[in-house]
Design a binder for these strands. Structure first.
Length: 469
RNA sequence: GUCCCCAUCGUCUAGAGGCCUAGGACACCUCCCUUUCACGGAGGCGACCCGGGUUCGAAUCCCGGUGGGGACGCCA
């Protein structure tokens, strides 16, 4: 066989937003396809009609878009492929690899409960499984049947997982899973098999929680391959999970947030991508790299098989790096929006680009950046403790004299620095003694970049207005 | 309970039997820079889960234990 075009897919179910774990799975699938010049496909697994919502579909699409994970095909929707599933279902029924099961839900529940009580692995008892020489029970009239896959009962299913290595499972551990509900709609494991096969998926890259589904899917694929010799098995790569910063599993109730939340919180998509790429994958000692670089470097051989804990500090560090590297105009647009959300209107003066340039080094998030330059456009809340500490009675004459002098000072950083320096030296003081009171009155607090630079951006009029000692 | 998976600094990780006195990054600590706080620079603290093998030699291979996780749906 010659080289087959690589085709990967991301197949979320639209029952919620795109969270960080799903995002990483999508990123890795995307990167694998890019690396090999293949196609990345988006498929929405919406066969659970009761729980799927259009809002969730949109949330997933938004998340993918924000992260810049473009797909070559799709989005495909499983609900639109019903005819195809029914067709395959019929083929399997005809071939005898699937059968009707008339056990009621109640019956099944009771069976499961009993097995749990006996400390057995809960599984279907094969009541309606046809066998040569076996007489099936009389078909009840009040039960609509489900369709079950006739799983092999002996031997083992095995595959060489691209991240975990060889995994073998005995067929007698598997039971006959339901592949179509009593209303005729197909279920997850069946749809996945049909879709991955139809869509020519070559590498299934998905979460660790699917390891247990893989043997069932392989068995179905094998059964299908007996009917259609063209059907090939994909390779499988199972990614371990991402745990919360406390080491606990991420869930809706516990720490799993939408990737869009990171946007709201002031993280750049570049930072999130870079961070996610390093969570469970490595390229030597490289830490900071672009999405494009990642796509060139990515491979399945350097994926860690163990679970990774999410660490906000490192994300912050990366985010700060990307904030420092970002285009000023882009930042200005973004920060203006964030300030607007705080009911602060950005005006032409002071220059927001100058303000951002002065503060970007110290911001871990865009929200912090917006917060830190807010005082240029609104009156700062004076930190009373800082005021008390730095604006002491003895310094007031110096400050008043300086303020008066400032009124006649050329408004450049250099001239402002000289003016402050003059107040410092002519009074035999240390620089901070004069700089700190200015800082408190001008910015509201005791921390800021060089105060002369701050004054220069703030402007003469506003500076003098705030310097009412 | 049964089956499956996993195990290197606090965290993310490098590591393919000798390059390991176990490397890098985040965080933390110290110092330098300095106009406060950051940024930046230089140092520092800090790990191979335990026990058996295999081997001249094991973080690396094998077995067992322990610990953690996942799955066991007419969810995906």
């Amino acid at each position: 066989m010659l080289y087959m075009t690589v085709r990967t897919r991301f197949a979320p179910s639209p029952t919620g937003f795109l969270h960080i774990g799903g995002a990483r799975t999508a990123l890795f699938s995307w990167a694998f396809a890019k690396k090999h010049g293949g196609d990345f496909i988006l498929r929405i697994e919406d066969t659970d009609v009761a729980r799927s919502t259009p809002e969730a579909v949109q949330a997933i699409l938004d998340g993918m878009h924000w992260l810049g994970l473009d797909y070559d095909e799709g989005p495909f929707y499983q609900m639109q492929r019903m005819d195809r599933y029914k067709q395959v279902l019929k083929t399997m029924m005809d071939a005898g690899s699937a059968y009707y099961c008339y056990s009621s839900r109640e019956e099944l529940d009771a069976l499961r409960e009993q097995q749990m009580a006996n400390k057995e692995k809960p599984r279907y008892n094969g009541k309606w499984r046809p066998e040569v020489g076996k007489t099936l029970p009389e078909i009840p009239t009040d039960v609509k049947p489900v369709i079950r896959f006739k799983n092999p009962q002996t031997g083992v299913v095995a595959w060489d997982d691209l991240v975990k290595g060889r995994i073998e499972i005995a067929n007698n551990e598997l039971d006959d899973l339901i592949i179509a509900r009593d209303d005729g709609t197909p279920t997850y494991n069946f749809c996945v098999v049909v879709d991955d096969s139809d869509m020519g998926i070559t590498q299934v890259i998905r979460g660790d929680d699917h390891v247990n589904n893989t043997p069932r899917q392989i068995n179905m694929l094998l059964a299908l391959a007996e009917i259609d010799a063209n059907i090939k098995l994909p390779k499988y790569a199972h990614l371990s999970m991402i745990l919360g910063s406390d080491g606990q599993k991420l869930s809706k109730r516990h720490g799993a947030v939408s990737v869009m939340q990171y946007d709201d919180d002031g993280y750049l998509p570049e930072a999130v991508i870079n961070y996610l790429a390093r969570l469970g994958w490595s390229h030597g000692d490289d830490e900071v790299f672009s999405k494009q670089q990642f796509a060139e470097w990515f491979d399945l051989d350097h994926i860690t098989p163990s679970a990774a804990q999410f660490n906000t500090e490192k994300l912050n560090w990366l985010n700060n790096h990307y904030i420092k590297a970002a285009d000023l105009d882009v930042l200005a647009t973004d920060i203006t929006k964030r300030l607007a959300r705080m009911n602060i209107t950005v005006t032409a003066q002071p220059s927001i680009k100058d303000a951002i340039a002065l503060y970007r080094d110290r911001a871990n998030t865009l929200n912090e950046l917006a917060q830190s330059i807010a005082y240029f456009y609104s009156q700062p809340q004076i930190d009373e403790a800082a005021k008390e500490k730095h604006i002491t009675p003895d310094i007031l004459p110096v400050m008043n004299a300086l303020t008066a002098q400032l009124a006649n000072t050329n408004w450049t950083t250099e001239a402002l620095h000289a003016a402050i320096e003059h107040a410092v030296t002519s009074n035999g003081l240390k620089f901070p003694k004069v700089a700190m009171p200015l800082r408190v009155m001008l910015t509201g607090g005791a921390q800021s970049p060089s105060i002369d630079a701050v004054m220069c951006i703030l402007g003469k009029e506003e500076t003098l207005k705030r310097l009412a000692f």
